[in-house]
């Protein structure tokens, strides 16, 4: 036994914000493994420039944002390719956002409605001046060339924009 035992001292110190009460600053960052699991084919589809919804095998309900099982009847769904064109169901231009998206502001969020689909799809709108954004505006899906396997691999532009391709 060593009555003079010492734990090693380190040099990194502590970031103190305040003394009374004592407030410290911690950094907090992790690598997290997120599985898209049963939603994976949707993200694979984006990399092939396909927008995949799903369709209930029992009641034929069509979901513009896919789900592997039907919210109306619980039956399994099958993958169902959506048309590349839809309309703006609603929209907003965000001047602030969560910290992760603050650098991208202002950006416009839209819910897209598709012919033949019972639900909507959340996406971003590009290339439409704020004063020209309106409910009902026909829009067309565009895809990132370099897929990141994120829902932002697809975004929408005004139908007229197609001429500029």
């Amino acid at each position: 036994m060593d009555p003079n035992a010492k734990l090693p001292e380190t040099q990194e110190g502590t970031v103190l914000f305040n003394l009374d009460p004592i407030i410290l600053k911690h950094h907090w960052e992790v690598d997290y493994l997120h599985s898209y699991a049963q939603d994976s084919p949707f993200f694979a589809g984006l990399s092939e420039k396909k927008l995949l919804g799903s369709k209930c095998t029992a009641c034929s309900c069509v979901y513009a944002t896919p789900r592997a099982h039907c919210m109306e009847c619980g039956s399994p769904t099958e993958w169902h390719e959506l048309p590349p064109e839809g309309r703006i169901h609603t929209f907003t231009t965000c001047f602030f956002g969560g910290e992760a998206f603050l650098a991208e502001t202002p950006f416009t969020l839209i819910l897209v409605e598709f012919e033949g689909a019972d639900t909507l799809f959340l996406s971003r709108l590009a290339g439409v001046p704020e004063e020209e954004i309106r409910i009902g505006l026909p829009v067309r899906a565009r895809f990132l060339r370099n897929s990141k396997f994120k829902p932002t691999d697809v975004y929408f532009v005004a139908m007229d924009g197609a001429q500029n391709d």
Binding site: T92, L122, K150
Partner: peptide
């Protein structure tokens, strides 16, 4: 499907 597009509750309520 939602958070990565620009997760922001004020945006959802605005829509």
């Amino acid at each position: 499907f939602d958070f990565p597009v620009g997760g922001f509750y004020s945006g959802y309520y605005a829509m």
